[in-house]
Design a protein around this nucleic acid. Structure first.
Lengths: 245, 245
DNA sequence: TGTACACTCTTGTATATACAAGCTTGGTTG
DNA sequence: CAACCAAGCTTGTATATACAAGAGTGTACA
């Protein structure tokens, strides 16, 4: 075949060729032509359609995947990703409820559930003495099987002595804590970070990829109940907050 | 030349080869061996050192660049990026001061400065009637010449009638507004978004790449002064907030 | 009937090669 | 001395090719 449209060697007159392919795919998605879960043409198909090599078509698909627009899986194909879900910061809502509200299935993986010794930072946050015993849990929350939150939590054992005995596959820590110690106040800190090793592995993303990290200290009438670090993959979450000061 | 260490064709026994190169570079940076602005070995050099092709070495460098670890520029080389600067959400600080506090040079580009008609959304935010006249400005703020904030702002002309006459290359809108209408309150919303076309162009990043977007409505005793949308490239900014409720 | 195997399509990794284009350096020339 | 130009480095784009590995399909054989 084939037309051999213009120059064989590139030249990059103005924009690279893979950009045109990316733009085309984006347009199809934005116009609604290709809905979520739609199967995108294969690398070879795109290469043929746009008269470029497979590696060039591949680059377009790879970049869109990095940007969260597409999802790929070896042997199956490339698919339009779901739009990023939106979560709320202000209401300290249960992540399981958020997922359910989207009509998705909720799941979690309990990576750690133990008693530990408070570091200086944790002790200060919980209002305990350094070296005091605290409960430490690490849980990954799943939305349709896909990790969307890494939760590392330190809990005050004097206020919630039965924390370690809970079945967190049934009710999330947040749900349990708000039930046994109704919260009156919370400090929250938001930042954008690159995933470290442990987080990257747990969330099944590349080390260093962008995440939203939330630090939250929840307080009840009796004192500081819990100190949590919540990390969301940037690609799979969106976060809104109304702050007032 | 060459050793031809093992198999010519890949095999991908466990981890891809570019991962080893990425890990090596990360290790050098984390150990402090390669400080910010350090010039990383070239693609050809790495290819030789690790006994891979240039394209494989290139992949390692490209991915680390996407992740914000490195910076590349054609003709010059590849360099270790500065750690992402941290900004504050709570204190509504002047972006110029933030930049100066880091010892960097501040600059800006004024893309738009005009009178406009309030859309429904803007009218509601500013407490004006739909269709009322508002001042509209778009400014890009630069840190050492690199765009770090896209600021789109709607200002209430009844409270700040001389807004359009200001020289915003000398004092940022924020600085001017806090001087003429001391703020008493602010609503802020934070979310992670993919850059749209206009933002991507202004911030010199790829369309769709991750950004922190802040909506902020500032109020003074006399009423709502201004409604701003601030977009930071995720790679070049970090944001902290203490929320309380 | 049912299991195993081969075939085919997909994405993933890796290489060798070519040329484009940006920046620095050094030499040549006016 | 200054201006210009060529050489040599860098990264950026593009191709053709090869093999690896995951997933589905269908056929042949026990």
């Amino acid at each position: 075949m084939s037309s051999q449209i213009s120059s064989t060697t590139t030249g990059a007159s103005s924009q690279p060729r893979y950009a045109a392919i990316k733009a085309h795919i984006r347009a199809q998605i934005e116009s609604g032509e290709w809905p979520a879960h739609f199967r995108v043409p294969s690398e070879n198909q795109l290469a043929q359609d746009f008269n470029v090599s497979r590696m060039t078509a591949r680059r377009a698909l790879s970049e869109l995947t990095d940007e969260g627009v597409l999802m790929r899986s070896q042997g199956l194909g490339t698919f339009v990703a779901e739009p990023v879900p939106a979560g709320s910061l202000l209401e300290v809502r249960n992540i399981a409820d958020e997922v359910a509200a989207r009509g998705h299935s909720y799941g979690n993986r309990i990576l750690k559930l133990e008693q530990a010794i408070a570091s200086t930072e944790v002790a200060v946050a919980l209002g305990l003495a350094e070296g005091a015993a605290v409960y430490h849990s690490i849980i990954v929350h799943l939305d349709n099987g896909l990790p969307i939150q890494f939760e590392e939590r330190y809990t005050n054992p004097t206020l919630v002595p039965e924390y370690l005995q809970q079945d967190f596959s049934a009710a999330t820590p947040n749900e349990y804590l708000t039930r046994v110690a109704p919260l009156t106040e919370a400090d929250t800190t938001v930042e954008a970070i690159g995933a470290d090793g442990a987080v990257a592995e747990a969330l099944e993303i590349d080390k260093g990829s962008a995440c939203l990290q939330i630090w939250r200290r929840t307080m009840s009438r009796a004192g500081t109940v819990s100190f949590a670090r919540l990390v969301h993959p940037g690609n799979r979450y969106r976060l809104g907050a109304q702050l007032r000061f």
